[in-house]
Amino acid sequence: MLQRFVNPRLLRSALPALSFAILLVAIFYTQPRTMSYFGLNLMLQYAVPIALATLAQMFVITVNDLDLSIGPFVGLVACIGATFLYETPLLGILMLLGCILLYAAMGALIHLRNLPSIVVTLGMSFVWLGIAVLVLPTPGGKAPEYLKALMSLQVPLVPFPIVAAIVIAVVVHVALMYSSYGVVLRGAGGNPRAVARAGWSLLKTKMIMFGLAGFFGVLSGLSLIGLTTSGDAHIADRYTLYSIAGAILGGAEFVGGRVSPVGAVLGALTLTLAGSFLIFLRVSPDWQIGAQGAILILVLALRALISRGEVR
């Protein structure tokens, strides 16, 4: 068996990179013209907002919760970004800060009342959507110029989405995996009781993780309207599923605080490429969601196989 030759732990952490590489090769094989600066830029354009939303989801997953409201939340940020942030920047910034605080408050509520996160976040998804509809009743608005300029940045040699993804992944990875408080944050998911006994506040860790999720949700929404140049309350409805799928593809475990920021970003890139790949293969759009489900199940099955080797 494979496990006899390769360290399962190493294999598991290499899985996101491996699946990304395999998919990239498959795309280059079926459509050689994508193997260019322009081709990659086009395919990976939307990977930046998706990667940011995936990181937001990953923060919530770290503390053993699941966020079913990130999609509508990114939609709300897009609406605020295309209206208030454009017309009255100061008010817009205050509103976005308020959104982040609300996210942290959501984490506090879940912790204090010991509520199931899926119910609370599902309820909040209605609230985000409702506010978004009030802010921007019909699709439209204008994205601030600096966001548009940032998202259409031309970097020499390497396309901007790739540069952005690497920067985001490395920054979050270093902060969460190598800082001492990052260990506490992950420990709050791995063994909450031990972390609490060591004197750390679980309430605080949960609020920080949800607050971070809100912050990355804001970044995701802003980068999204930098690409679309206008807003819509339903612009990011699919991001809830994308973010969960991306985090899973990136190696996040749903219990025990085992996550990987680099993996999550790779997972989001894989997911974005999978969409293009299915189009190149002329798979009917009807099966797009199904294919994503199938990819998820496949990756989870592979991981189950690897874990079996790890236990032995």
């Binding site: 009342r113 199931p116 119910v119 209605f126 609230v127 959507l129 409702g130 506010i131 509809v133 009743p137």
Partner: peptide
């Protein structure tokens, strides 16, 4: 309005769950 309805539905569900579901801590 549609937006307000969504907001209130979400908030009331969360409020009820907070009151009903938090019983055994």
């Amino acid at each position: 309005s549609a937006g307000l309805r969504l907001i209130l539905t979400g908030l009331i569900i969360i409020a009820v769950i907070t009151l009903a579901g938090g019983g055994e801590q």
